[in-house]
Simulated assay, not measured.
Amino acid sequence: MGAADERAPESVRRVVSQVFGTSVRSCRRPAVGSVAETYLLELEGNPERVVCKVGGASVWTGAVIEPAVCRLVGNRTALAVPDVLASGRFVDAGRTTATETAAPLSRWALYEYVDGESPDPWYSQCDRTVRRRLVSDAGSILGRLHDWSTTEFAFDRTGGLERTPNHPTGLCVCDSTPPSVVDALAAVSQVLPRRSLVSQAVLCHGDFHPGNLLVTSSGRITAVLDWGNAHVAPAEYAVARAEVRFVDRFRSLPSPERARLREVFRARYRDHASLESDYPVRAPLYKSLWLAQSAINLASVARSSRGRTQIRRQLRTIVDR
């Protein structure tokens, strides 16, 4: 689940001491990359294990929003989201500036440790019954998230998310950092059939794929992780993007199996949220737009030395498999 033991940064140790009144016994980094600096901590007291994240700025707005999103979704739904145990800002000299977006590494959060493993390393090679169960649960989770956000918020626009302490949700929708696929979707909507579900704006996880899940050995999902890139986008776009991540990119799977996985995913999504019967006609367009946005986001991450380090780490992980 993680790399070899290493010493937790002094700032993280200090946070643990202040929040829990205990010390860090051991520290591991996740085996795969993360937008945030992530540490898996074993503590001397209670709780025995926690996850600490430092930074994790959204690619959409540059703000650190994950703790607020997790609190919102965790408190108002039954979805498997780790509890936020505490969050705050470092006050060390050199780590704090006037604005959050200027110093995302000043933000920290402590999360509940959830049992389970990432299915990413074995997803394409596992028993098909396990994979189908996982995809079924994933479709259900996405449908429940979209149904809840439609009922709860009735978003009238798409965009990124920023923290706003004065709002009941702790978040507000704002313009995404350009260039954004949101602009392209707005243009595309002018030529699509006038259907409310095509442009229905919903809360999106932002990076929903097997690597951001924890599961049991049978494929049951125990947690959905890494909500740092959550944003508001059209529901159909989010469904198509998830299909790419859970089905389309695994070209080693036989074509009939991929078709079956799409069928399972869409059926479980429809158990909770609406999906137009002619969605498959539009899905390839949404998937192309997602690929374009992914390239834009990758270029944005690569502009910083830390981002380039994350990309290299991810590539090494892929090669090692």
Rank of each mutant, 00 (worst) to 15 (best):
A242Y: 04
V130I: 12
D207P: 14
V202Q: 05
R245D: 05
I221G: 07
S140W: 00
H167V: 15
W227E: 03
P121G: 06
D226W: 00
C126N: 03
L161N: 02
E236W: 04
W122M: 13
Q125E: 15
I141K: 08
P210Q: 10
V130E: 13
D120S: 14
N229T: 08
S218G: 06
L110G: 00
R131A: 09
Q125R: 14
L145P: 07
V202K: 06
R194T: 13
L192F: 08
F208M: 10
V198F: 06
A138R: 04
V198T: 00
A223H: 04
H209C: 07
L142V: 08
L197H: 14
A154I: 10
L110N: 01
G116K: 07
T158S: 13
D115A: 09
Y123A: 12
V191Q: 10
S118T: 11
E117Q: 09
G160V: 08
A223P: 14
P178V: 03
V173M: 07
A186R: 15
G143N: 04
I221E: 00
T216E: 13
V247I: 14
H167A: 14
S136A: 15
S199Y: 11
D127Y: 05
R157D: 09
G139Q: 08
V224W: 03
T177Y: 10
E162Y: 03
C204P: 00
C174G: 09
G139H: 08
T169I: 06
E112P: 07
R241G: 15
C126Y: 05
A242T: 11
Y237P: 15
R220D: 10
S217K: 14
S118A: 03
A233C: 13
D115W: 10
A109M: 11
V215G: 02
D147C: 14
R163T: 14
G139L: 11
T164R: 12
S176I: 07
F246C: 07
P165F: 03
L203K: 02
H209G: 09
H205K: 00
G219V: 06
H209N: 11
L225E: 02
A187C: 12
D120G: 11
G206R: 05
E162W: 00
R241I: 02
V239P: 15
D137S: 13
T150D: 13
V239Q: 06
T150L: 15
G139F: 06
L213M: 11
E152S: 08
R220Q: 00
P178Y: 02
T169L: 01
E243W: 03
D175T: 15
S140P: 15
A233K: 07
D207H: 04
Y237S: 13
V232T: 02
Y123S: 12
T151C: 12
V247Y: 13
A187S: 15
T129Y: 04
A240I: 04
W108E: 00
P119F: 11
A235Y: 02
P121N: 03
A235F: 03
C172H: 05
N212P: 06
V244Y: 14
H205G: 12
W108D: 00
A154M: 03
R131I: 07
V224P: 07
L213H: 01
T177H: 15
W108M: 08
D183C: 13
C126I: 12
V182W: 06
D127G: 14
A184G: 09
V239N: 09
A230H: 01
C174D: 08
T222V: 05
A242H: 06
Y123V: 11
